[in-house]
Design a binder for these strands. Structure first.
Length: 470
RNA sequence: GGCGAGGUAGCAAAGUGGUAAUGCACUGGUCUGCAAAACCGGUAUGCGCGGGUUCAAUUCCCGCCCUCGCCUCCA
């Protein structure tokens, strides 16, 4: 079953097949490591992760590259503010990022190149662009890409006549005073000449000391690790313009390739119906949510619970819903285990089995919410206790095939959570049990109420009872 | 102003030219001394608004309203 995915460039759904017939090569724009990534950033990375998992589950190996932007205005500014060297500063945030990725069950990219580590590659690309007449050095030592030299500029973002429309832009007046050297307002920096406030963060180049422009790193690293031509390029929807537009221009002008064949963009996450922003106080990191008692798995569930091309509204209620949904899956899995299935399939599941519909839906433009719906529909009509062992094993294997495709790890069912019950609580519970057995309902009920107010719930069964944290 | 995405039950969110998946919440039942948990049910005559096409539209077409994103370095 081939995966189809919407392509931003052609605005059409396209079948995803590796152009070399073997490995699907794809590049994702990674984070700028100057602070903790927020859940909006992670919506994109999680969507890319599901994409990779579905491709691999479908039987196609992948080569996944995701860069780290470890030199730009923000990293330079904030590292100096923190009194740290750029590399020390970005290493710290890179490690934080990796820890979050691990918590969210993101598969590590095959290569995670950093901009600073690929300066020669970027310089080489600039030299080629200058030789071919697509770039020019300004008097101050900066180098710019000449947008007018590339006829196809604007195809991705559909802004063919950008310069004419600049007057309508609200930010048109905010021309960067440092970029007055440009021939045209539309031209963008490939190399930025050293400035006093860069501190010690500059490198030598044929045009003098300075640092690479942001757009260039992705082009250079994609070329290095994927070649001139590769299958899929991905990022947040905000990167379409100018970042990806510029990447296409640089890459196509410095090689003879077509660059990425397919563009996969993930729509932004909204919070409480609006944009996430620090000033509104609704910008959350994974750590913020964990502090409030939510697990990374629950966050992941919320992030994939909307289609990647539709805006998704993040709320705490949706986190609570995710918790219950995961519990429902976990309880079903437990029931299968009680029917004789192993905790996890002995080997990686190879087919969706009874969840074929969910798998099919998932392969139609990565419709995760549709797939989740189909999974629950199958769940609701399957009674583990009434299955033969073979049937149970097929359901179990299919379920895990789908969970692996979505990168969902099941929590421990809440009633199985081992908790330390304080002696005082255990004592109250025991007294209530005695009262109950003595049919002294008023005493039993008041003790149960007391326990509840202390944060503990009692779950009775025939011959015993369980104490659970509320 | 230009380009793009979206408006479906209390919340979230799929989907289809023939009468609306799924999760949460709510609610009825079974069970229980009563609860909780679990299990079995129920819950949008309706899919932003107004026209049109059609035997039939939430789904196609036209117009309008609203929300969100981008328009030079924000995933």
């Amino acid at each position: 079953m081939p995966l189809t995915l919407h392509d931003t460039l052609s605005r059409q759904p396209k079948t995803i097949l590796p152009m070399d017939g073997q490995t699907l090569r794809f590049y994702c724009c990674g984070p700028t490591v100057y602070g903790p990534a927020h859940i909006g950033n992670f919506r994109t990375f999680v969507a890319q992760d599901v994409f990779r998992r579905v491709v691999e589950k479908g039987g196609t190996p992948t080569r996944h590259i995701r860069n780290l932007t470890d030199v730009d205005d923000k990293t330079i500014r904030d590292s100096q503010k923190a009194g740290k060297s750029l590399s020390e500063f970005t290493r710290f945030w890179t490690e934080k990022f990796h820890a979050d990725c691990l918590s969210l069950n993101l598969l590590a990219p095959h290569v995670e190149p950093s901009a600073v580590a690929h300066l020669p590659h970027q310089i080489r690309m600039i030299e080629t662009l200058i030789e071919r007449g697509h770039a020019y050095a300004a008097a101050d030592g900066s180098v710019y890409f000449k947008v007018a030299s590339y006829a196809d500029y604007g195809r991705l973002s559909h802004l063919e006549d950008r310069e004419l429309k600049l007057g309508a832009s609200s930010s048109a007046g905010a021309v960067d005073h440092d970029e007055y050297e440009k021939d045209s307002l539309a031209d963008f920096a490939l190399w930025k000449a050293r400035r006093p406030d860069d501190g010690p963060n500059y490198w030598p180049s044929p045009w003098g000391e300075g640092r690479p422009g942001w757009h260039l790193e992705c082009s250079a690293m994609a070329l290095e690790y994927l070649g001139e031509d590769f299958d899929v390029h991905s990022g947040g929807i905000d990167l379409i313009f100018p970042h990806h537009e510029n990447e296409i221009a640089q890459s196509c002008c410095s090689t003879h390739g077509h660059f990425a064949r397919h563009w996969f963009h993930v729509t932004h996450l909204m919070v409480d119906g609006g944009k996430m922003s620090k000033s509104l106080g609704n910008l959350y990191t994974l750590a913020d949510l964990e502090k409030r008692g939510y697990s990374a798995a629950e966050v992941r569930y919320v992030l994939i619970s909307g289609h990647y091309r539709a805006p998704l509204n993040f709320t705490f209620h949706s986190l609570d819903a995710a918790r219950q949904a995961l519990q429902k899956l976990a309880k079903f899995d437990k029931a299968l285990q009680e029917r004789g299935c192993p905790a996890l399939p002995a080997t990686q599941s190879l087919s969706p089995g009874p969840f074929a519909e969910a798998w099919q839906v998932l392969n139609d433009d990565l419709n995760v919410p549709g797939a989740l719906g189909a999974i629950f529909a199958t769940l609701n009509k399957t009674k583990p206790a009434s299955l033969s062992l073979d049937e149970a094993l097929a359901v179990h294997s299919g379920l895990h095939f789908m969970l692996e495709s979505l990168g969902l790890k099941l929590p421990v069912p809440s009633q199985d959570l081992a908790t330390d019950v304080p002696a005082e609580i255990a004592d109250l519970a025991e007294r209530r049990w005695q009262a109950k057995n003595a049919k002294d309902w008023p005493t039993a009920d008041s003790l149960r109420k007391e326990l509840e107010s202390l944060g503990w719930l009692i779950k009775d069964s025939k011959d015993s009872y369980q104490i659970l944290p509320k």
